[in-house]
Computed example of a mutant assay.
Amino acid sequence: MTDLRARVRAGERLTGCFVKTPSPQVVELLGMAGMDFVVADREHAPIGTGALDLMALAGRAVGLPLLIRSRTAEAAEIWPALDMGCSGVMVPHVRTAAEARAVAGAMKYAHGRGFSPSGRAGGYGSLPAVDYRRAQDETTVFLAQIEDAAALEHLDEIAAVPEVDALFVGPADLSLSLGCAADAPELAAAIGRVTQAAHRVRKAAGLFVTDPASIAAHAARGVTVFVCGSDQGLILGGARRLMAAARA
């Protein structure tokens, strides 16, 4: 499997989508389609632990890095997914550097994550403990979601947390927090502030988009990590196009 964290840190343009259907087959198909990564959306979809375990297995089978969008920043929400073999986490509503450091503590063995190599990520105990610990700390990805107006006052401090790999804008929540429309200049300016803060410390900037046609324009402004829609949107859009063609 590709080292997603190295690619994020290198500033490659990477595109994935949310996965809201608790299905390993969906993950397998998205990997076969060539996506750079996908994010299992435990915040807004009914993805339980058992389903996530099979989704992580499917992702590894096709070389597709699977992250989770966690429901909270609690350690118990994060480390089990990493033990299953997920490649990292997207954590919603990171507002301060202290919150980002707490997530780092849940993710990284060097910062206190409870150690066990007995899961899929540790080769079910077959990997040397030292090598496994080092590999986990070096490769697990942390996308800190910037979704609150309050976070805009702490962008430099959040980005400076060493374990943060990207500042990732959730535009829907951020526009609500700012009290503006999704196409308002205020939101565009906020996305620019996030991107600039990330770049000041050589971190990546990420963004959720609904239209793949918008990716090029955002990339020109320095955004490199994109989550575009979801598996549900891809199925719905494809089915609608099929039916429109069939009825033409």
Rank of each mutant, 00 (worst) to 15 (best):
M1G: 13
T2M: 13
A6C: 07
R7S: 09
G11H: 02
R13Q: 14
R13V: 15
R13E: 08
F18A: 04
F18L: 02
T21I: 11
P22I: 03
P22L: 02
V27A: 09
L29W: 09
G34F: 01
A40T: 07
E43D: 06
G48V: 07
T49M: 11
A51R: 04
D53A: 15
M55D: 05
A56C: 14
A58S: 14
G59A: 08
A61D: 06
A61G: 09
V62F: 03
L64F: 01
L67M: 01
S70L: 07
R71H: 09
E74Q: 10
D83P: 08
D83G: 09
V89S: 05
V91N: 08
V94E: 00
H111P: 01
G114P: 11
G122W: 02
Y124M: 06
S126A: 15
L127P: 00
L127S: 00
R133E: 00
Q136L: 10
E138K: 03
E138Q: 14
Q145H: 11
H154V: 11
E157V: 06
E163Y: 10
D165L: 10
A166C: 15
A166R: 02
A166E: 05
F168E: 00
F168R: 00
F168K: 01
G170Y: 11
P171I: 14
D173E: 08
L176M: 13
A182L: 15
E186R: 11
A189N: 11
A190G: 12
I191S: 05
V194G: 04
T195G: 05
T195V: 13
Q196A: 15
A197L: 00
A197S: 13
R200Y: 04
K203F: 12
A204V: 12
A205W: 04
A213H: 10
A213F: 09
A213D: 15
I215C: 02
I215Y: 05
A220G: 14
R221F: 01
R221T: 14
G222Q: 00
F226L: 06
G229H: 11
G229E: 06
Q232N: 07
G237C: 06
G238N: 05
A239T: 13
A239Q: 12
R240N: 13
R240K: 15
A246I: 04
R247C: 07
R247E: 13
